[in-house]
Design a protein around this nucleic acid. Structure first.
Lengths: 253, 253
DNA sequence: GCATTGTCAAGAGCAGTGCTCTCGTTTGTG
DNA sequence: CACAAACGAGAGCACTGCTCTTGACAATGC
């Protein structure tokens, strides 16, 4: 935001350092006791300061949580972005992103719960989170855009009446996203139906990770590795990223 | 559990009544302030009693929450079961269940968050919840079983190498579920691949509902009606419930 | 019928929380 | 150097979940 001063004063450096330490300690407690158990007083105690001093850095507990949420979004976004960075076939990059995201979620369950679980206490996501939050879906879109540009996917697939044709409000919403995607790096356009399918794939991915993490697979699909593998393979086919272009996603029948 | 006495004493009736009232008031506060805001003292205050008296009915706050969780699972399970009760084509019953579940979730967001959001505070789901929790996925399985039995779905679809063939650990896990399903009402068996696909559809459904409810669709897909419609149509095709059997889920290409 | 036993609501109290306010002190700047 | 902003410390408020004790009531055995 504000331009970084050439020589930050000792006070500013101390402040930045302490802010970092507070978040670090908070993240530690988060990993131990979850969002509910995160206590400002405990964080302050652990840092050897008094609780009221902490309010100079985060005006409320929710603000601390928001900072952690943004960090988590960014961390996961970076994981996804490095996963798709490899110069491989789009399908490989897609699958890599899915596995990387799951890996991060399993390694940081409480931080995952913080951003993809039920919204914390009373609290509504502030605007500052939507940027970092969009990094993951954006990464998937980038892969699809590259696939379209590279000819790895049929570009114009507006065939008549599919089982769930994109039309009406859906088409508009998808077009808005596709437009935003084109505007930024300015290359090939992604068809509306592919955008919609990508969003569905996105929800599918996080639905499965959430179920695995939040214990909905109790006695049935645990571990969920095989199920996940199967699901993401289907998802890649669903959005149009095929290993063998024919028989995309209908082995049944 | 315990056999109901023919003539419950006045004390027993009062206790049951008060237990019901406590849960009712707790549910009301839950709808207003979320799980975090639910306070035993506030519930007691609203009921005109003192907080300590409440501990005679629920030994701890977590126990109250558990009771609410079980109730929520049961309520949603019943919604799903009545939705599939109609004697229509399996595909119609499937879609009805999806829409009914979403409708309940939108009407009871906090209760939904309680059961499908991040697991509350520190707490791990006790065994008593797994029964009610399985009613929804079970309902979907029943539809599929009926579809297989009624010939609405290809029964043996073990064609060679699909994009994500079910095999190894996945096949075992799916077979265990299919076996449990057959054991109860004892009719047609559901192929392993269909079971796996049903589970994936289940996670997809709740992934989308969660994203809609928890605000991940911020500026993009709101309202999500059209997206949901499109997604569940795909899901029905994905598990093998087709309106027009051919071109199941591959309008792309 | 009376005494015993168990259940119940009430109250006080403990340890903990988020948050606010007021103090001196420290630090950077005009 | 002086002044203002930033800071850490402490006390305090209202609230929480939870425990313990006390006295009143209802159900049961003799």
């Amino acid at each position: 935001m504000s331009p970084v001063k050439a020589s930050p004063t000792a006070r500013e450096r101390a402040r930045a350092e302490l802010t970092r330490e507070i978040k670090e300690e908070a993240r530690r407690q988060l990993a131990e006791t979850g969002a509910h158990g995160l206590s400002l007083r405990a964080v302050a105690r652990e840092l050897g300061m008094v609780s009221s001093a902490l309010y100079r850095y985060f005006p409320s507990r929710d603000d601390l949580l928001t900072a952690l949420i943004i960090d988590a979004y960014d961390a996961l976004g970076e994981v996804a972005e490095t996963a798709i960075a490899a110069s491989a076939r789009p399908r490989v990059r897609w699958l890599a992103a899915c596995h990387a995201i799951r890996g991060w979620a399993l390694a940081h369950p409480h931080e995952y719960a913080l951003i993809y679980g039920s919204p914390v206490p009373g609290y509504r996501a502030p605007q500052a989170t939507v940027g970092p939050a969009s990094r993951v879906p954006m990464a998937f879109m980038v892969v699809l855009r590259d696939a379209v540009a590279g000819g790895d996917m049929p570009a114009g697939d507006e065939d008549g009446t599919g089982p769930g044709l994109v039309g009406g409000a859906l088409a508009d919403q998808a077009a808005a996203i596709a437009a935003a995607l084109v505007a930024v790096p300015g290359l090939a356009a992604v068809p509306a139906e592919v955008v919609v399918r990508a969003v569905i794939a996105w929800t599918q991915l996080f639905g499965m990770i959430s179920f695995e993490l939040f214990g909905q697979f109790v006695g049935s699909f645990e571990p969920a590795d095989a199920l996940f593998e199967y699901a993401v393979a289907h998802l890649a086919a669903f959005v149009g990223l095929d290993s063998a272009p024919s028989r995309a996603c209908a082995p049944i029948r």
